[in-house]
Structures are given as structure tokens and as C-alpha cells.
């Protein structure tokens, strides 16, 4: 199998080729070319095995001057869980003055990552 993948790790946006090979024992390995750094290789292999993404969004608040507060997940989540996590984020209403890096949803959907606040705007 041969696939072209664009790395989204940094603005360089390397265009990579990944080849999947199976040896005689059925063990699968990957060959990545076109990547500028090691991160590209990791990203390319993940794309074929278990693609991960980050989410940045906002949560509603009770504060008139700051109707929404920016947030994100503390680490990447599986790509196919993006809309499920968005649904959780959109259930939240912030009622207290939280700070940057404060946890908004702990261990969201049991994925092992938190939804955290990314601004000190309320302070």
C-alpha cells in the first residue's frame, strides 16, 4: 500500500509518502519518505493506524462581558471522536472565574485527556 500524507505537525507541511509492507511472518512495517523531521514519520504512521487530532473550541459562560471562553483538549484525541467531544464541550456553562489551564472537563468521555481553559480572560 502506498499513500500520500501531508504532515500537519508544523507550518512546513511536508508532503510524505508512506508505504506499508508485510514481511513473511505477517508483521507490518511502514516506510516514510519526504518528511523533514522525525515528527513527520510518527504522524504519517499514526495517520494509517490511529489518526489523532486536537480540538480547540469555546465554552459558554454566565458572564456578560465574556459570553464564551476559549478551551482545548490537553492532548490529541482520536479523530473519530471529534464530534463526540464537541458535544460534551457544548454542554458546559462556566459559572465561576476560572483561569488559563484550569480543567473544564476532566477525562472527557474516558479518553484520558481533559478539556482545559486557554485564557485568563475572566480575570
Amino acid at each position: 500500500m502506498n499513500k500520500e500524507i501531508v504532515c500537519i505537525t508544523c507550518p512546513r507541511g511536508c508532503i510524505m509518502k508512506v508505504t506499508q509492507e508485510k514481511d513473511d511472518l505477517g508483521k507490518i512495517s511502514f516506510q516514510v519518505t519526504g518528511n523533514f523531521c522525525k515528527k513527520g514519520e510518527t504522524f504519517a504512521i499514526n495517520e494509517l493506524t490511529s489518526p489523532m487530532r486536537t480540538i480547540c473550541s469555546t465554552v459558554k459562560t454566565d458572564f456578560k462581558d465574556v459570553p464564551v471562553l476559549p478551551c482545548r483538549v490537553s492532548a490529541d484525541i482520536p479523530k473519530d471522536k471529534i464530534f463526540d467531544v464537541m458535544a460534551e464541550i457544548n454542554k458546559v456553562v462556566i459559572t465561576e472565574k476560572i483561569k488559563r489551564n484550569d480543567i473544564i472537563i476532566k477525562n472527557v468521555l474516558g479518553l484520558g485527556v481533559d478539556v482545559i481553559c486557554t485564557s485568563d480572560m475572566l480575570n
Binding site: 486536537t54 476559549p70 485564557s119
Partner: peptide, 21 residues
């Protein structure tokens, strides 16, 4: 609010507000 700010400067993927703050 999206991430990708500060990669060159901090080697981290910050959101806009995090970078500005």
C-alpha cells in the same frame, strides 16, 4: 482560539490567547 501559534518561538502549539497572554 485554534492552536499552532508559537511553534518557532516556544516549540509548543499554543492557541492564540495562550500565545498573547
Amino acid at each position: 482560539i485554534h492552536d499552532g501559534f508559537g511553534l518557532v518561538r516556544y516549540g509548543e502549539k499554543l492557541s492564540g490567547p495562550e500565545y498573547a497572554e
